[in-house]
Write a protein that binds this DNA or RNA. Sequence first.
DNA 1: CGCCAGGCTTCTA
DNA 2: TAGAAGCATGGC
Length: 282
Amino acid sequence: MMDYGTVRPVGEDTLVEGVRNFTLGDILDCGQCFRWEALGGGSYRGTALGKVQTVTQQGDTLVFHHTDPEEFHRLWKNYFDLDRDYGGVKALLESDPVMAKAIAFTPGMRVLRQPPWEALCSFIISANNNILRIKGIVERLCGLFGEAIPGGWVFPTPERMAALTLEDLAPVRLGYRARYLLDAARLVAGGELLLEPLYTLPLDEARLELRRICGVGVKVAECALLYGFGRAECVPVDVWIARALETLYPGGMPPEIASVAGLGQQYLFHYVRNCESALQTV
DNA sequence: CGCCAGGCTTCTA
DNA sequence: TAGAAGCATGGC
């Protein structure tokens, strides 16, 4: 079971029809990724996986512009987690009444499968920062140090970043987070911290590995694992989720939903940030 | 101007 | 081990 149907080329584009549990705007504007912008009319342009990509949602159809079906299957299917059956995920989460409300508010939310290194860095940058400024920092980082591609720049590699100094990074305006990024880059580029095993390592070991980086605490490690390594059990607790846990889950989240609690967290995050009454009504 | 932002490290008791 | 201070930057 997957969340898309027919994939077919139309002119230079690829149409993905029969898409379910998918609202492009909610997915790209919910604080999980920082390199997409709305173009209007249901279209978004972003840089990911080595490409500058434009996507448009028209009802249950996605249009991947200037993309052939092979590339959709190779890159974007996985990025948008379209092989996951969110109907099943939501059915499990909805056994909990709080989740049922959050899901009703954004039924098309999904958690992207982003490249690990970029996700890790993005959430190191996110510490005590706001989403608008995170986006600006990431764009400057890519523009200054990422490899140029048609229409933009990719996220810089660990090797490139490991070769930088704090002075080099000054124009990025990272603040005190600059040295955190350099620490991460040097550990990863030097082979002291291996990212690949974090896809499958027992969670507690994966968390400890990431926290070897200066600048990676409990929350950032959880973000990296959820957004960068597809670890759906991981629940990043920022100030919003902390508030939600306090008022909506005084006894903690139900253990029955633990296997997809991180996905539930994404519905909840969007819900409490965008629905006025979310934290007031029970 | 003060407050806050998808927190973290470091210092102190 | 727990709690508070300090931290760069920029929008409101």
